[in-house]
């Protein structure tokens, strides 16, 4: 029983990381209809930014987050303005290609600035093990699960109760109609990139605190893709839940079946789910996938 509980807790921790990264993907997809293939690189870049801030100023986790998130949002806005805004009105495929190019640029820039060596980054968190019942956690692992819950709550509140959030849903439902109703689509796109970068920062800091900081962190973007597909491309909350499911399934598969099944378990789940619900667990029916 302990073994099962330990596996589930480990799965929730890795699933929380997947979920946060997938939420960033879902937010941009919801607002712009485009999958941002540079999301993993944003996670990596913002984690490195936090690492530099932590190196310069001794900050606790929440203070570090408070400083990093606005910078991440500014990075998201800048990238949107430079790379995505000029592509407005172009075919989705062209915009996706731009995000792929952006991903390569961000990887190169990160290595140029911070170098290729992996780094230890505690992110202002203690490394004392906390035990909840029979289950030990590092604080960073609990923070990852907690932050995912907070992000889900904030996303729900934002999309349901704020003016910008409702406008974003309107753009997602029908961009032309939203435009005719006076919604600034450009502004919504910018907000989506900015908020997505903020989520990437939280995900990046906690991922680095749990699994080290390195220039190969961008790959977590691709690892989180099954969570996004499972939850539904345009559902933030679905992406978070999808992340947790994929994390737990992967860990259970490795724990009980072993020998590399972790790698394929997530994909088996999405194949099965998509056969039953092609738009994902929480996605809207009329999604055109890229």
């Amino acid at each position: 029983m302990d073994f099962l509980l330990l596996l589930i807790s480990a799965g929730l921790v890795s699933g929380a990381a997947y979920g946060m990264i997938a939420m960033g993907f879902a937010l941009i997809y919801k607002a712009t209809g485009v999958v941002n293939f540079a999301q993993g690189e944003l996670v990596m870049l913002t984690a490195y930014v936090a690492f530099s801030i932590a190196g310069a100023v001794d900050l606790g986790f929440w203070s570090l987050l408070a400083v990093t998130v606005p910078i991440a949002m500014a990075i998201g806005l800048t990238l949107e303005r430079i790379f995505i805004r000029p592509m407005l009105g172009e075919p989705a495929f062209a915009i996706v290609m731009v995000t792929i190019g952006l991903a390569v640029i961000l990887r190169g820039v990160t290595i140029m600035i911070w170098g290729p060596d992996p780094l230890d980054f505690a992110a202002g968190l203690s490394r004392e093990v906390i035990t909840l019942g029979p289950i030990p956690f590092y604080p960073a692992q609990l923070y990852a699960i907690g932050c995912l819950a907070i992000l889900v709550g904030l996303a729900y509140g934002f999309l349901r109760y704020t003016r910008v959030g409702i406008a974003m849903r309107a753009v997602a439902a029908n961009e032309t109609a939203a435009l005719l109703m006076g919604v600034s689509v450009k502004r919504i796109h910018a907000v989506a990139w900015s908020l997505s970068s903020a989520i990437a920062a939280v995900a990046g800091i906690l991922f680095a605190a749990n699994f080290k900081l390195g220039p190969d962190m961008w790959f977590q973007g691709l690892r989180s893709f099954p969570a996004l597909i499972l939850g539904g491309l345009d559902s933030l909350i679905g992406a978070a839940i999808g992340g947790l499911i994929i994390g737990v399934v992967e860990t259970l598969a490795q724990g009980y079946l072993g020998q590399g099944l972790r790698e394929i378990a997530g994909f088996v789940v999405i194949v099965v789910i998509l056969m039953v619900r092609p738009y994902g667990l929480f996605g809207a029916r009329d999604i055109e996938r890229v």
């Binding site: 799965g11 921790v13 890795s14 790959f219 860990t251 724990g255």
Partner: peptide, 17 residues
């Protein structure tokens, strides 16, 4: 005896095994 893919970062399940 356990195997893993190059580049894997999360070893929680393996260490539990």
């Amino acid at each position: 005896r356990l195997r893993f893919k190059r580049g894997q970062t999360n070893f929680s399940a393996e260490v539990l095994q």
